[in-house]
């Protein structure tokens, strides 16, 4: 099926099979391999992207369903190679180890902080509870998001 959508501000087209997920379409057809695929059934959060302003699991959406939508992936957060506030804060906090879960956490935390700039630690933990990390034990990730929230508040 022929589809047209916007990805990271650019119009993209493709002809995925109906069974191709948005995650695989981004990775295989558009070469945007920053979006990771872990469990492929909705439970790990690694494939989280932003679809029309909301975080979604791209492994549970068919690519054909994203026709006409606006998608933001991890590649869209630092288009010129300059890290955003959240990414820099996570870097400074040594938030991640192997990096497999990273794109999912960053996309989820980005949309959450945008909607809830004053979130406290408990709210941040709840917001990230759907993302699984097998390396860190989570504390460093939470620290990074808290640091980003603080830096954003200070301007």
């Amino acid at each position: 099926m022929d589809i047209t959508l916007r990805v990271n501000g650019t119009t993209r087209t493709g002809s995925p099979e109906a069974r191709k997920t948005l995650a695989d379409f981004l990775r295989d057809d558009l070469n945007l391999t920053g979006t990771h695929v872990g469990c492929e059934h909705g439970v790990c959060g690694a494939c989280t992207v932003v679809l029309d302003g909301r975080p979604v699991r791209s492994c549970l959406i068919l690519a054909v369903q994203a026709a006409g939508s606006e998608v933001t992936t991890i590649e869209g957060l630092a288009p010129d190679g300059v890290l955003g506030t959240l990414q820099q804060a996570m870097w400074d906090s040594h938030s991640f180890q192997c990096g497999f879960c990273t794109p999912g956490f960053v996309m989820q935390a980005t949309t959450f902080l945008r909607a809830h700039p004053d979130a406290d630690e408990q709210q941040i933990r709840a917001a990230l509870s759907g993302n699984i990390c097998r390396c860190t034990g989570y504390q460093s990730i939470i620290d990074g998001v808290l640091l980003a929230a603080e830096r954003a508040r200070l301007g």
Binding site: G42, G45, R54, P55, R57, L60, I61, Q108, S129, G130
Partner: peptide
């Protein structure tokens, strides 16, 4: 129900 990224769809 689940998480934010589940309820969004």
């Amino acid at each position: 129900i689940g998480h934010e990224a589940i309820r969004s769809r």
